[in-house]
């Protein structure tokens, strides 16, 4: 079954304005890990908001696990789709970590003991148990985002959308978040939609999609997309530094494959020079 399905969806922010999303057809299978790439303003965040009913489409049909997106189904869909947003400071409601994680679970009216269990589960899944009684203000950006993920997990959703959740983090924080979502996908079978402008983060995905001006312009495995790096540059996406190194070594006559994994590249270089 498809977790998310878009059929001919149009969306624009203003009445007469340009389309933010234009005739979009797109689907995500249950348990799949999809990366959505695009520069700022390519429409990728609009996609996330449409999926969760924070925006409603002008035209076309959106379904989540077969349930069509209507006002009546909004609550049902939101229980299944969790979103982690960009700014780590603007997603926490409560001044204590556990209270914040509990927020969603309280909203859907779970009994107290169950909420307690969900807090345990969610904080453990993001590795933040020891911060249960802390105040989010004093945590690092990566830790705050992990709390935001925990807050979403407490609702036990089937799909997790990360809407540029790593954009404001330092490299260490970015790695923490990517580790957590990869584990959720592999171990818990969580369907993950990772929206980002960092090509490196897309590497672990099963499939990558590139958006430009509200349309899907490229689609394939991360390796496929990476192969077509010249095309990527036309969509204002940069090749990661390691990709650039591969290309330059190839141009210099060295027989190394395209890879974004530095251990693998080192392995290949070692083979070539010895």
């Amino acid at each position: 079954m498809n977790a998310i399905e878009f059929k001919g969806v149009d969306f624009s922010y203003s009445e007469d304005g340009a389309f933010a999303i234009k005739n979009l057809n797109f689907s995500v299978k249950e348990g799949e890990f999809v990366a959505v790439l695009g520069h700022n303003g390519s429409g990728k965040s609009t996609l996330a908001r449409l999926t969760d009913g924070l925006l409603s489409a002008d035209k076309g049909e959106i379904t989540v696990f077969g349930t069509p997106m209507t006002d009546k189904n909004l609550y049902t869909i939101r229980k299944q789709v969790g979103i982690v947003f960009q700014n780590p400071d603007n997603q926490t409601v409560a001044a204590i970590v556990e209270d914040d994680v509990a927020f969603g679970a309280e909203n859907i009216g779970l009994p107290r003991e169950e909420i307690g269990k969900r807090i345990d589960f969610a904080l453990k899944a993001v590795g933040m148990e020891e911060f249960r009684h802390s105040t989010p203000t004093r945590l690092s950006g990566g830790q705050k985002q992990r709390i935001a993920i925990a807050g979403v997990l407490a609702l036990k959703p089937k799909v997790m959308i990360l809407d540029e959740s790593t954009a404001m983090l330092d490299p260490r924080g970015r790695r923490e978040i990517i580790d957590v979502v990869t584990r959720l996908n592999k171990e818990e079978g969580m369907t993950v939609v990772l929206i980002t402008h960092f090509m490196e983060e897309a590497l672990l995905a099963d499939r990558a999609i590139v958006m430009n001006r509200g349309e899907i312009v490229m689609e394939g495995t991360p390796a496929d997309i990476f192969e077509r790096h010249e095309e990527l540059i036309t969509y204002n996406l940069a090749l990661p530094r390691i990709g650039y190194i591969c290309k330059q070594l190839q141009a210099g006559g060295m027989d190394v494959p395209d890879t974004l994994d530095y251990e693998k590249l080192a392995e290949e270089i070692a083979k070539c020079v010895s």
């Binding site: 603007n90 009994p111 609702l155």
Partner: peptide
């Protein structure tokens, strides 16, 4: 942003809401 984050976490006011901390 916070409004969106609350909506996304199924906030619908106090109706049917439970409380974790007593």
């Amino acid at each position: 942003d916070l409004g969106d984050a609350m909506d996304a976490r199924c906030y619908m006011g106090s109706k049917n809401r439970t409380k974790y901390k007593k």
